[in-house]
Design a protein around this nucleic acid. Structure first.
Lengths: 397, 397
DNA sequence: GTGTCGGCCGTCTGCCGACAA
DNA sequence: TTGTCGGCAGACGGCCGACAC
């Protein structure tokens, strides 16, 4: 997907990558919970969340000596000028580049949500499957065993009158490269296999058991395939280009400069590395912050991705509301909600979430509280109060 | 080499890398012209040069919208607190991490060079060889052909009474990993070959024809080996962590913050990616700027690395003196000398150099000029004037 | 002195159904 | 239904000297 042209010199971008990058495939690799805001819409950018992504990507905690940017608001309302989807040439890791422009104080004064900003169309493909590779799949001894239901749903139908039934499949990856596979239905009992061509793909992508592959059959009868690597903890290496401290300073300074001059700046969003989305549709943010009352003791549920690239809901209880970092980022809505999780494997889920990530169960509050977020936390100065915006039912997406 | 412990959390640094990284090997891979300043000495740091390294590493030109930092001097005199040598886990690319602390204005007032800061010991190994790999060397069809003189100089002597003479060599790479090779002297005519073990090394390091390998035999009778990849233009990929604009802003803001607060900051120096060294020993800088008179028309020579990891001098003429970037970096000594080169392949050599990179031939000026650099370019305010420093012969290193 | 090749052998790749979980 | 294995045939890896530049 190339939503619009981006500025700046980039010798690599002109070739195949941007032309061929398939939006469905990108979303399939990014995961079912990842959504990108619409180009042209307004979004809220959280430097804090961006900083968390850098921390996760560089494996380095932020140094306490990094200067704070008192002039930088913890949330910037921005116009989203450009979104381009990309994939790392080496690892196929998906990421998005966004060009943001902070709104001027005048523009912030008459904010009213546009109808187009209220919908968030999901771009998840429908006809696809995702399989985690077994030791046999990645071994040089054989090919790839395709789960029967997946093959029948996603691959073109074989001519079962032949013995054995087989065909050639050609699939495009994120970079537009084509991979040929021999798809055969054989064995006793019969099963679907990818044989010739499979090992070349495994070694070229350096796939290991535990990694996942995704096959997509789209409306134009094209086959795509993507990969999702297992979370190997040491995979992300510290960059030798710039110190992690300078990177943190850089993102803050870039955002502060853009906010001060109402000029554009560019960020990368790495959905599988980042702990949480840090560019949120303004409509989603406004709904969560202005039109949802949360309080300590309230029950909620939240979506999480499963290993099979699907999602499920986990239940929890709000245990506190307050700043994650009162010194650097006072009055920030980023991860302002402290939560406890119902299930005992709760160590895997974060103890703090943001309002727009959760669905409060307002019908059955466990410990009803008279103090709503709105009453307890006055709106920070310098942020818009949406005066021209009617509190209409349209906000309840 | 681990010169001192570095601060900050880094899960990877505690393992083998820092313990085993061999200083001689690092310098052999970095090249004969690269020298690192001494820990504890004072250095001059050039944000401009650092920025050039980021440009080279990210393949992106700096965007014109990056804010200038008027408070940031184009050259910062710093105390060098720490230098550690590193190698990229994926590519074996060598780089150095330096911790710098800008001197306070008071400290800058009484600068006098210490004797220890005057010497720049070269750490180039003596007993080593470097060979650029041929198609046969990297092919799966055979092993590695060792040039006869190199094998006799660097490898342990074979027992030539055996038929054929052979031995097992074990060499450590930059990460401390050991590689075993069968070294044999056979064929008609006889030649030195590395056979068993060689192809494993080639594929593990992903070496291609044109890349170079370096073997070192040190004083403790240990064998080391390093690699130097050919300059494949598209090798460096844009980082998906942070936009190149933010990186440029980050390094400037980090340096500006450190200068304003006299606190430490960390940089990475990547000798083979960076066009020029941007952390220069104070003594070298002072000698070039204060004790060398250059003028337009003056002849000079300058060292360049050859393909065989040696160096040679090229001759040129100074064609101008002035700011490289008068807007962002006025009164900077960074690449302030415009030059023309004698040899016709001059397109490969930069049209601008810094004073400390060249050796002016003061004995035979081609076009004598009455205007020296010192007279034409008054010392920028805010920089030290070395009042306590005697103009002694020690300065002539 | 050394880069590339043909020859030759041995190992490993990779396709098959068997079998069991 | 599908993960792993033994069996087998062919491809490729990899060691050798020949030969030429």
């Amino acid at each position: 997907m190339r939503l619009s042209s981006s500025a700046g010199y980039n010798p690599q971008s002109e070739e195949d990558e941007n032309k061929c990058l398939n939006s469905e495939l990108w979303h399939a690799c990014a995961g079912p919970l990842v959504s990108l805001p619409q180009v042209g819409s307004r979004v809220v950018y959280f430097p804090q969340g961006h900083s968390e992504q850098v921390t996760a990507s560089t494996n380095k905690e932020v140094d306490a000596t990094i200067p704070s940017y008192p002039g930088l608001s913890p949330q910037l309302i921005c116009q989203l000028h450009n979104v381009t989807m990309h994939a790392d040439v080496e690892t196929d890791e998906v990421y998005a580049q966004m060009t943001l422009q902070p709104l001027s104080p005048e523009e912030q004064k008459d904010i009213c949500l546009l109808p187009a900003e209220l919908g968030t169309p999901s771009k998840q493909p429908t006809n696809y499957f995702c399989k985690t590779l077994t030791a046999s799949d990645t071994s040089t001894h054989g090919g790839f065993s395709v789960p029967r239901r997946s093959a029948e749903k996603v691959f073109p139908t074989l001519d079962y009158s032949q013995t054995p039934p087989c065909q050639e499949l050609i699939a495009k990856d994120l970079h537009g490269n084509e991979w040929k596979f021999r798809h055969i239905f054989r064995g006793q009992p019969k099963r679907h296999l990818l044989t010739t061509g499979w090992s070349v793909f495994v070694s070229a992508k350096r796939l290991l058991a535990g990694d996942s592959v995704i096959f997509i059959w789209n409306e134009n009868n094209q086959l795509f395939l993507g990969i999702r690597r297992a979370n190997r903890p040491q995979t992300v290496m510290p960059s030798s280009v710039l110190s992690s401290d300078s990177m943190h300073i850089g993102l803050l300074a870039a955002a502060a400069h853009a906010a001060a001059t109402n000029s554009r700046f560019t960020i990368f969003y790495n959905p599988r590395a980042s702990p949480s989305e840090f560019v949120i549709a303004l409509a989603k943010y406004a709904k969560a912050v202005y039109h949802t009352r949360v309080s300590v003791g309230m029950r909620f549920r939240m979506l999480f991705e499963t290993e099979e690239s699907s999602f499920r809901r986990y239940m929890g209880t709000i245990t506190g509301i307050g700043d994650l970092d009162p010194v650097r980022w006072p009055n920030s809505h980023w991860r302002s909600v402290k939560v406890g999780w119902d299930e005992s494997t709760a160590g895997e889920r974060q103890p703090r979430v943001s309002l727009w990530e959760i669905e409060p169960l307002t019908t059955f509050p466990m410990y009803p509280s008279p103090f709503s977020l709105r009453l307890k936390r006055p709106w920070p100065s310098g942020l818009p109060s949406f005066p021209g915006c009617k509190d209409s039912g349209n906000m309840n997406m």
